[in-house]
Write a protein that binds this DNA or RNA. Sequence first.
DNA 1: AAAATTTATGCACACGCTTGCATATATTAT
DNA 2: ATAATATATGCAAGCGTGTGCATAAATTTT
Lengths: 345, 345
Amino acid sequence: MAYEHSLIMAPTLKDIAEKAGVSPSTVSRVLSGRPGISEATRVKVLEVARELNYAPDMSAQGLATTQLKNIGLVGYKYRTRWAGSMAPADILGADAAAQKHGYHIITTYVDSEQMKSITSLPMVDERRVDGLVAIGPGISTRLILHLHSRGVPIVLMDNFIAEAPIDRVLCENHEGAYAATRHLLAVRSHKRTAFISGPISWTSSRERYEGYAQAVTEAGLEPLRIEMPNTIYETGYQAMRELLREHPDVTAVMAVNDATAIGAIKAAREAGYRVPEDIAFVGFDDVDWASLHDPPLTTVRVPRFEMGYQAVERLIERLERGDVPPITIRLACELVIRRSCGANR
Amino acid sequence: MAYEHSLIMAPTLKDIAEKAGVSPSTVSRVLSGRPGISEATRVKVLEVARELNYAPDMSAQGLATTQLKNIGLVGYKYRTRWAGSMAPADILGADAAAQKHGYHIITTYVDSEQMKSITSLPMVDERRVDGLVAIGPGISTRLILHLHSRGVPIVLMDNFIAEAPIDRVLCENHEGAYAATRHLLAVRSHKRTAFISGPISWTSSRERYEGYAQAVTEAGLEPLRIEMPNTIYETGYQAMRELLREHPDVTAVMAVNDATAIGAIKAAREAGYRVPEDIAFVGFDDVDWASLHDPPLTTVRVPRFEMGYQAVERLIERLERGDVPPITIRLACELVIRRSCGANR
DNA sequence: AAAATTTATGCACACGCTTGCATATATTAT
DNA sequence: ATAATATATGCAAGCGTGTGCATAAATTTT
C-alpha cells in the first residue's frame, strides 16, 4: 500500500453540496451557522456532512477568512542544555484551551543567542498563526514590540513589558514570595537571610525579590540579594558558594526558583551546613521533583497549566472579540510547606 | 494604536510583480527556483522580494500545493496530572529539525481516556499538517493504523507497532537495560533481582525487561518481573511495596524508568532498607533531576532530543522524497553510573 | 535573411472556502 | 388576487500561489 504524495482526498464543500442537492455556498452557510437557512436543508446538509465526515480545509478557510485558528507558542532555549522557557505544563494548558475553541498550537523555541537579533518570526511572516503567546522573561522586548506594532495579537506569559499595553498573564510572585518568607521567618528566628535572584530585569526575579524584601524588612531585618545571570541549578550552586563566602552567618535563603534552590542546597551542604537545621531554604515553582528532593523542598506552587490555559483563552478572546483593552491576569500561588524550611513536617 | 482584526497587510506576489515589472507567475517561479528565468529578472525579483520582506502566505501555498510544511506532534496526557508523553526535549529536538527545513511543529496532547475511542485527529482532518510524529507507547494502535491506512505519513517514537510497516525511532532499550543490569550484577553479588515494569505491551517496558532478563539469566539467576499499569512515581512506590511483601530478599532492582525507580527507592527506605547498601537500584531515562536525587540515580540516558530530531528528519524525508521504504532508527543509550547502584562513586 | 528552434514570460484557471449581490420562492399585507 | 415584503438559495468573484499552455522574444540553423 503505497503512500500518496499527500493525504488522501478529503471531502469538500462541493461534495456535500452535490450529495445534498444544494449549492456549495449554502453548505458553507449551514456549517458556519449563518442565519437564513430553512430548517429542512439545514438538517439535510448537516446529515450529509457528518456522513461524509467532513472537516474544512484550513488552508482554504484561512485564505478566505484570514483566520487560521492556529496560535503560536514561542519560548526560548538555552545553548547549553535541552531545556527552555516552555514547560510541558504550559503547553498542556495552552493546548487544553486551544482544543476547547477548535484552535491548534504551534510551538517554537528561539535560540537565546538569536533572540537578540531577530525582529520577527517565520510563523508570523508566513501567516501560519493568528496570534502569539510569548513565554518567559527571556523573550526579547524588541521582538515583542516589533510584533505588537505590526498589529500581531500577542499575550505575554511570565513576562512584563512596561513599554506597551499588552495582555499579560503572571502569577502572584510578590504575594507568593512574601508568604514564603514570612513562613521562613516564623519557623524560627533568623538574623541574616538572603535571596538568590536571576536578572532583576526579569519580572519573576524582581517581583519575588520584592515580596521577600518586604517580609524581611517588616521583620526588622535587612534584605540581601545576590543576582545571577540565569536561574538554573548550576547557577544556584555558584550563587550559594559566593554567598557563604561573604556571609557565612546566613541562616535562611529564598531562591528565585526550585532549580537554583536545589543547587544552593548542594553548595550549602558541601560547605558543611546542615539543611534545614543550619540553613533553611525555600524555592519557587514547585517543579514535579521538588517533593522528591532530600529534604523535600518547601516552595511556592506556580500554576503553569492554568497560566498557559488563561493565556490562550485571553488571546482567543482578543482574536474573536476584536479590539478589547489589554489586561494583566494574575494567578494565585500556593505555599507548599515541606521540610527544607525547617518546619516540623 | 488599535488592533486590526487580523494581521497587518503583508506583501504578496502581486506586489513584488508590480514593483519588479513582471507578472506574478514569474515571481512565483523565481522564488521557488524554477528553471527558465533570465538572470536579469531573477536578480531583480529577488531584490524586490528581499526589500519588501516577502514571505509566502502558507494558506495560499498550502491550498495550491497541498504541502503545508507543518508537522504534527501527538502525545497523550494523563487525566490526573499535568504531564504527558512528550517531554520538552522531544519538542526541542523536533523543532530543531523542523526549523532546519522550514517546517513548523503543531503539538497536541490527547487525553488518555479519549485515546481509546478516537480514530483520527482534528489537525489531520482539517489538513493542518503534512504528517505526524506520534510519541509514546500510549498512542493507540488503532489510531495509528487508521491514520496510516488513510495514507497519512507518520513516524512513531518510543512505540513499536508490528501490524504495519511504519517508520519508527527508538533507543536501544535492550542494550541499555542489559548494560545496566550487568553493571548491577558486577558491583556486588546478588541472589534475587527484580524488574519493575510498565505494561508489557509498551515497547520500552518489553525491550528493557528483555535486556534485564538476558543479563540476569546469563548470570545464572532467575528474572523476576512485576508489571504495573503505568510508569509514574506513585506506581513505582506501589510496585516496590508489593515486591518486598513477596520477596523481602531482593537486593537489586531495575526500574523501567527513573520515575518508578525513585518511587521504588522511597518504598524501600520506608520499609527499612538502606539504598544502595541493602538494595541497589537503577533507572532508565536520565531525567534531569536523576542526578539531584539522594542517592544520585544510576540510570541509562535516553537521547530524547536526538530522537525528536531524527523522527522529524525522517518524516520530512518521507514527505519530500515520496515513497521511501519504512525504517526503524535505533539510537544508542548511555549508562550513567551514579550511586544508587552501589558503585563506589 | 528566413525558418526552425530554444528561451523567457504572461494568461488564465485551479485549489476550497466565504460572501455581496441578485433572484426565485414563500409569506404577509392590501 | 395582487402587491409588498421577508426568506431561502444560487452565482460569481475573491483570497494568494502554482502551473499548463500559449505566445513573444531571443537564439541558432539553413
